[in-house]
Design a protein around this nucleic acid. Sequence first.
RNA 1: GCUCCCGUAGCUCAAAUGGAUAGAGCAGCGGAUUUCUAAUCCGCGGAUCUGGGUUCGAUUCCCGGCGGGGGCACCA
Length: 602
Amino acid sequence: MRFTTRPKEIQEFVSPCKLIQFNLRQCVSGLFPDADVHSIRVQPCDPKFGDYQTNALMGLAKSKGLNPRKLAGDVVARLDLSGICESVEVAGAGFLNFRLSKARLAETLSEANRGEHLFFDRENVGRSIIVDFSSPNVAKPMHVGHIRSTGIGDALQRTFRLLGHSVITDNHIGDWGTQFGKLLLGWKEMLDRSALATDAIAELERLYKVINAQCDADAGRLEAARAELVKLQAGDPENLGIWREMVSLSQVQFDALYSRLGVRFDKALGESFYNPFLAGVVADLLACGMARESAGAVAVFSDGQLPPREDPFLVNKEGEWVDDPALIRKSDGGYNYMTTDLATLDYRISQWSPSEIIYVVDDRQTSHFKKLFSIYRRWKPEQAKTVRLVHVGFGKIMGDDGRPFRTRSGDTVRLRDLLDEAQERARKLVDAKSPELAEDQRAEIARVVGVGAVKYADLLPNRQSDYVFNWEKMLALQGNTAPYLMYAYARIRSIFRKLDSAWKPGELASLILNEPVEIALAGHLINFGLTLEAVAEEYRPNFLCNYLFELAGKFTSFYEQCPVLKAEDPQIRLSRLHLCELTARVLKTGLETLGIGVVEQM
RNA sequence: GCUCCCGUAGCUCAAAUGGAUAGAGCAGCGGAUUUCUAAUCCGCGGAUCUGGGUUCGAUUCCCGGCGGGGGCACCA
């Protein structure tokens, strides 16, 4: 597989914000040819100041030793934004506030109505990005923690694709490694076939727990498990057969959950796929002198090129910097996940030549990825130069007690149970709110609403922070939730269902924006692309959540204040219909980009 | 012991190179439905852990303290 080339029908959209920024940079360049124009940014701002704002001139003034307000005034005097802004003001300590002209705003919306764009640009120079996310383990249930990597990773890859970047998603399944020794032992000694048929994952989990406990208590059992693992890795037919069965049973579970979540992968090359490459990786690193034997194992050490503080292979112990190497082969000859990750990284780069690889994996592995990336750069400097390696980390899900989240019985909450519960709650509400809808329709609404609510709840917080798990929050159907956004969408669709005449978007020459709520809604719509770009740059889907929540809020304000179908003036009615249509399209596209569906009625 | 991350309203979370009067949701209280879906809207109260520093300006950057969590080679 290769990255696909981009479709020909490229959307071109230059947001007014970008246009202002471009003009401002030109203007500053004219005044100061040596200025770093790149740092000058124009951004959406609090509506009380205007539509867009820049604070960059204050920084510039400081570096030039100039009076910031005077500099701002000089810039404004030379800045020609006619046709874009109706006002440009110097404010506060030296801010520039831009207010978009109504004509420009209306024209931008009209372009969208004509189908020229949806307020975002499919970039001319796309990135080719491999997104590594989800990565569940074979023989273990997917639990609530998996929703983080899966949801964030999926939202990011959808964002990249929407913006025209090339993407390969790869699910690096944990299908190889130490745990299989214990699982094999359990399978051979105490497998309950009927339990396996009923709930394979539960039975595998039971086997693992029993053997694991035995191994903790008895070194002999641990040795027996290790022996099974060695046999597996040596290609013993019986163990391989059992292993394959465990993998395929797990795949059934993964498929069921991914299907419910609406997540798909281009590739699912698990750890086992890289097994044949591991010995070569270690041999290479030994040969080039990066790795050496240490206490019977093989490890990569510091090359002394970095200051100790920045060196991932050094750690400070009692005032002295000592080695903190990365293990790539265990003393028993087995390999660990650093080796697998190196082989994976090398394979991906040589096979697919991406410009970027992102790993959506929790923050606990930060130091692992620092080491991984560092080893690769030292190992294959030429290849490493062509690719940007990013660990997109995220925080943990915590319990009320401030410790990593578990149920009362001490287990983690299973993803399946969480989704079931969400759908049940949504179903109750649908039944209460819309009893007139058909049975199958209500079931479908409950499904989309329930799953959407859970996914949105996880995407909403800043990914870097830990968040406290709470059933009520996860399953909330009111407030800043997916159902709130879906509800706004459903209301719009309802308007169009009631529309007597046939509806053809794009018939309108120009939108009429008179009411403040109309202008606010329109002004927010055109920032969709800026938000998508921020998501793609910072790897933060929560920007899109917040954008959509605000959009739904602005729409609802408009909806409460401005009659659409009942507008007296037919031109205003038509204009508002177009505004509704655009809002619906952005809501739908935005939610889909988060991996969340919409419903026509609810 | 070393190291990384975190600490924002009663609770859960935001705050896009350091920006303007720090925003939401939930909970509480009070309102709105003969009007396109009340899973809605409007209103009220309430916050940056602590002490310094840098800056015109700090939730954001630096140092100390307190509190919580993670990671410290043969698990991933």
